[in-house]
């Protein structure tokens, strides 16, 4: 017997297998696993480049793009892409042309975009579900959204994998990248585009508000566990996929918000790494001193 959030199933096997008989659960699991792996991969670059705030900014800024795209009948990924990259360009422009500090500019721009999105949702009469955008709902994903999310995830996964080495170099030492003739502008926009696209993919599973967790936590967890970048990627993807799948199951069995469940599992994994990581966990240091 397993007891989870007050809900009881007969055995671990039925905890896993029984939901698979539902079409919507199979979809939710596929989407969550795929989105989880993309977010896990990207989160390594976000944490190492120090782009957590940028991830938050982009994920909120895609909101008006998604709304406009839905209203015009365009693919939502297109709208998200335009507004995501647009917001970052705007942040860069304002920072360069004024004396306001970068984090202030970021906070200012993304809340502006997000507010615009909220206003648009309430003004444009359409069948957009605000709750769906804000909090995600993988259990109720439409087949159109499903298809787009799958395409986005695969494209981003392939791009980030192919350019993995260059991106690591770009994050680690952009000066050297330039000095050996690598086009760092291209890599910068590749990472930004990947971020915008991943933000809308993540929006499907955990929603705009929590997507930044998907873009930061798996990378941070993996970072505590290893000193090698390749291993960090693998660990981040594994922890991200595990928490996504587990979150969906928990949400199914105990009828709680899916996005919240996914991010909570992720946070718990991080806390475990924080406490018990072999080299960087705090409990390890403590035993070392005493």
């Amino acid at each position: 017997m397993i007891e989870l959030f007050g809900f009881t199933t007969n055995s671990p096997a039925s905890f896993v297998i029984e939901p698979l008989s539902h079409e919507f659960m199979r979809r939710a699991l596929v989407v969550s696993a795929l989105v989880g792996s993309v977010c896990g991969l990207l989160s390594c670059y976000m944490t190492l480049k120090g782009w957590a705030l940028m991830g938050d900014a982009v994920s909120h800024s895609v909101m008006p793009g998604v709304v406009v795209a839905y209203a015009l009948g365009l693919p939502f990924s297109l709208g998200a892409f335009v507004f995501g990259v647009g917001s970052v360009t705007l942040i860069g422009f304002i920072k360069q042309k004024s004396r306001v500090k970068e984090d202030t500019v970021i906070g200012l721009v993304f809340t502006g975009f997000f507010a615009l999105g909220l206003v648009l949702v309430s003004k444009i009469k359409s069948n957009i579900d605000l709750m769906h955008i804000l909090f995600g709902s993988p259990l109720g994903i439409s087949s159109n959204d499903l298809r787009q999310t799958l395409i986005i995830s695969v494209v981003v996964l392939i791009a980030l994998t192919l350019f993995r080495k260059d991106l690591v170099l770009y994050c680690f030492d952009p000066t050297h990248a330039r000095s050996i003739g690598i086009n760092t502008g291209f890599l910068h926009y590749l990472l930004l585009s990947a971020l915008s696209l991943t933000a809308v993919a993540g929006l499907q599973t955990v929603g705009i508000i929590l997507v930044v967790a998907m873009l930061v936590t798996p990378g941070a967890t993996a970072y505590l566990l290893t000193d090698r970048f390749d291993r960090m990627i693998i660990l981040a993807v594994i922890s991200s996929v595990i928490s996504s799948l587990l979150g969906v199951y928990i949400s199914f069995w105990s009828d709680i918000e899916t996005g919240g469940a996914i991010v909570l599992v992720q946070t718990i994994l991080f806390l475990m790494a924080f406490l018990f990581a072999p080299k960087y966990g705090i409990l390890k240091n403590k035993s070392f001193i005493s």
Partner: peptide, 22 residues
Amino acid sequence: SEGIDCSFPVSVWDVVMMGRYG
């Protein structure tokens, strides 16, 4: 001075290999 983040998870070998990327 290398404006780099020294806690970046790369080994000495990886860093020197970056000289070969071009």
